[in-house]
Amino acid sequence: MTVIVRAFRPEDAPAATEVLRAALPFMVTTPEAMLWQSAHAAPASRYQLFVAERDGQIVARGEAGIAHESSTPGQAFANVYVHPEHRGHGVGALVLRTAEEHVADAGADTVYSWVLDEGPNRAFAERRGYRSSRSAHFLRLDLAAAALPQLPAIPPDVTLAPVSDWADDPRPMFALDAECTADEPGDLDAALDDYEEWLDTTWRDPLLDRELSTVALVDGVPAAFTAARTDGLTRYGSGMTGTARAFRGRGLAKLAKAHSLHRARAAGYTEAFTGNDADNAPMLAINKWFGYEICATEVRYVRDLG
């Protein structure tokens, strides 16, 4: 058996996407999105995709980079995904070591990694000096079979609009996304303060469905939104869902997401996925109301690079 770990190349996208889908079937991704992510990552992130070949077949995918949006310098991430049929042969260890070397060379002193909450995966991380931190859930909703709750009534001062209405000037969407992102629970804080970077990495992401992504406006002011990510076939994923601080407590995010899900089902999407920090009780309650069920849990692990 020969295993080679190398930098991702554009022609790897279909095989690397299949690896990610097999390892994390709750993710919504496409080869086009993987190519975009690789080509349009913020330079400051030093983002790098890796693949592992076993006897010439791509069997693992890794990603690593600097958490450049964090206020704490030296923070990095390294996530490794091995096809289930090729685990137990040392492939993941080689990818992780390559990813750690990459971020160390970029100046990182701490690295975070998401690990599925399963015995072998957790043992893999802990043997390599990682310690567990917070957890997050993947949730799934069967759009084809589930009976979605009735759409909530729209208050008189509220209107709903697709994100595509801001195609000519997305800056209000950037401001709303930045405020909600700043308050999202997690190990690392994140400040969205570069509009041009946001345009390139978020607004133009091929997975962003601007028609299904929905904004709730209060007296014409964007107040809450849900970002929909779709594969163009059957799978719908929720990106950020949030409400500006001045409008919280009114159920506006729930309203926006309800309308997005109903329209997604009408458009032919059959599965909806989302992810929530395990401590984000308000969003978990909203998703339970929609009928989402937890289908897997990840644990964030951290290691100090020495």
Rank of each mutant, 00 (worst) to 15 (best):
R229F: 13
L255D: 01
L233H: 09
V158N: 09
F124C: 08
W289R: 10
S135Y: 03
Q57P: 04
C180P: 00
R210G: 04
R134S: 05
K254Q: 03
L116P: 06
I4V: 14
Y292S: 06
F174R: 09
P31Y: 10
A78C: 07
S135N: 04
S213V: 03
P206Y: 05
S213C: 14
E53P: 02
V28K: 00
A246W: 14
M240H: 14
L151E: 08
F290Y: 15
V111G: 08
D165C: 13
C180Q: 00
A246C: 06
Y292C: 11
D142F: 11
D109I: 06
H89C: 12
G65E: 05
G306I: 07
D193P: 00
L192A: 06
H89F: 10
T202I: 15
S135V: 09
H68W: 13
A175V: 09
T243I: 01
D193E: 00
F225R: 00
D200P: 02
P152H: 12
G56M: 15
G56C: 07
G291V: 15
A167W: 04
D142E: 12
K288P: 10
E298G: 08
I58Q: 02
A42H: 15
A256C: 11
N280A: 08
A125P: 06
W114M: 07
S38V: 06
G242T: 07
V103N: 11
T201N: 14
A216Q: 03
Y130M: 12
A147K: 15
E126K: 14
G88N: 07
F124A: 10
L35V: 03
E53V: 10
A285Y: 08
H40K: 04
Q37G: 04
A15L: 13
W203V: 06
P25Y: 01
R127I: 13
P14R: 04
M173K: 01
L143P: 02
D219C: 00
A178N: 02
V299W: 02
G291Q: 09
F26G: 12
V158S: 08
A33E: 13
A178C: 02
